[in-house]
Write a protein that binds this DNA or RNA. Structure first.
Ligand SMILES: NC(=O)c1ccc[n+]([C@@H]2O[C@H](COP(=O)([O-])OP(=O)(O)OC[C@H]3O[C@@H](n4cnc5c(N)ncnc54)[C@H](O)[C@@H]3O)[C@@H](O)[C@H]2O)c1
Ligand SMILES: NC(=O)c1ccc[n+]([C@@H]2O[C@H](COP(=O)([O-])OP(=O)(O)OC[C@H]3O[C@@H](n4cnc5c(N)ncnc54)[C@H](O)[C@@H]3O)[C@@H](O)[C@H]2O)c1
Lengths: 239, 239
DNA sequence: GTGACTTTGTGCATTTGTTCACGAGCGCGT
DNA sequence: ACGCGCTCGTGAACAAATGCACAAAGTCAC
């Protein structure tokens, strides 16, 4: 009934999180000259099951051809459009330390509409330095930089102690999407979206699984009997 | 009946992914001298709902006191133990480019048992250089470094083109947990766990939400004429 | 000791995500 | 033209995660 209007916003979060991977796989196929791909092949390339892939793609529309598969270029375009990569997303990076510098150099930005238009730091010694072809500006210039390029995404690469302040400043300039590399929570007003990337968190999750594997093996060695089959047959390894 | 034995292993993935954040929040509280905390407070500090927090913690055991809350130090210890942080996790980083250097310098490693014991690259110009107090070794020495320190986690910070080769080499030395910063899928044998961290993916997810917000606002502005709505008449863009 | 008050831990309903299985649509060979 | 084999799209079953609400279990004041 009302669902018709909301058809576009009805893309599940879990699906959105996988779209970038599909897009990357499609790009790789394009570079290898492949023009058509089946859900089975693409799913393998992206590390998911084919059923999941098809369900995901079905949320965007019907871009496949039954009996044939998907046109690589066309599907890539549709996913890019869904993700908003057909438009321009000017980005600023705040904090030009070790990490900020690496991020500024990262060429992966270019792929898909992201354009670094500002590098900021509060350290006077860094201001004016040239990094990846861009002059570092002082934090005080944030508002100027932001309005000059109508920046839409902010990246925080400062220590955790400064992250909330920096975030507040970004939000004040009208930025509504923040990617945070500092190991801390950010509180933001409604309508602002933040994501965090944290090395330490990832390592801890890996450690948990490693430990569990070790305990399982130990238990299995003692128990012995329960090892018989049970046949859960997990396919993918990464998780 | 079987559930008793597996009760410890039965920690849901979604819960595991949040434990590091709880631990971080608890550490912050300890530093501020707080010794006791309620689920409400801790949940706020970690950015989740208190019900979710309690359910998560209940999977580890009953470490709270009704009417009072949780003992900060004790809970932190229990979470750390569950994550395996009470033991040592020697780590190697492969690829000492911009990113690898930043990672090697990152002090967040130290927190919780992670110890960088090896920095590796295949570029002879880098081998022997001192980074963060460690001498860069050549890739050929990987097996030696790994067995010398019984390395359990490998971090890949090389370009995507080399990532699979590096991963294979890591797995060959017996490493069963890999953190991959290169923008590509890794295929690994069963029993090996991989996670990927990708800036570009995160930006794309942010872009999606930003775009949706913009479309929603636009749609809301036009709204009021819900009458004509039915399915086959999309407003702006094709579908 | 008792009762009022606080906060945990958890059963249950709801929502969200995944897997399965199969019908529908397409290209191709004959 | 027409069936045949292939692969998409999808509804229905299943599983996981979340949110809700409250009884159980503790503290504290007196
Ligand atoms: N280095 C890594 O590999 C890594 C990995 C994961 C997370 N992190 C996190 O990323 C952040 C940056 O790490 P880093 O190694 O680059 O640190 P760093 O100390 O080398 O650099 C921090 C930079 O931020 C600037 N800065 C500090 N406060 C500021 C403010 N209020 N406004 C503007 N600029 C400010 C400083 O001048 C400095 O240049 C830290 O929070 C760290 O925990 C780093
Ligand atoms: N720089 C970033 O901010 C950033 C962010 C996200 C992802 N990434 C990804 O991380 C990776 C590293 O980025 P970077 O900017 O540090 O690149 P870089 O080119 O500066 O460094 C790569 C290093 O890896 C080494 N290397 C290459 N092949 C190797 C092999 N087979 N064995 C051992 N060492 C090898 C090279 O000698 C070089 O020192 C890339 O895949 C990049 O896409 C980088």
């Amino acid at each position: 009934m009302v669902a018709d209007l909301t058809s576009r916003r009805g893309v599940p979060d879990a699906t959105v999180a996988r779209l970038p991977e599909y897009l990357r796989a499609l790009t790789a196929l394009t570079e290898r000259g492949v023009t058509s791909v089946s859900s089975e092949e693409l799913a393998a390339a992206a590390g998911v099951s084919s059923a999941k892939l098809r369900k995901d793609l079905s949320h965007l529309g019907s871009y496949g051809v039954r009996g044939v598969g998907y046109d690589v270029e066309h599907l890539a375009y549709e996913i890019a459009r869904e993700l908003g990569l057909t438009q321009d997303w000017p980005v600023v990076i705040v904090g030009m330390g070790n990490l900020g510098r690496a991020l500024a150099d990262y060429s992966g930005f270019i792929k898909g509409g992201f354009r670094v238009v500002g590098l900021l730091d509060r350290d006077p010694a860094l201001v004016g330095q040239d990094i990846a072809g861009l002059a570092v500006r002082h934090m005080d210039d944030l508002a100027a930089v932001a309005s000059e390029h109508s920046v839409s995404i902010g990246v925080i690469a400062t220590p955790a102690a400064s992250a909330q302040d920096v975030c507040d400043a970004l939000v004040d300039t009208g930025i509504r999407a923040v990617l945070n590399f500092a190991p801390c929570m950010l509180s933001v007003p409604d309508g602002v979206d933040t994501r965090r990337v944290d090395l330490s968190t990832e390592l801890q999750i890996l450690a948990f699984h490693s430990q569990r594997r070790m305990l399982d093996v130990a238990a299995e060695g003692v128990a012995g009997d329960e090892a018989a089959a049970s046949a859960p047959t997990p396919v993918g390894a990464a998780r």
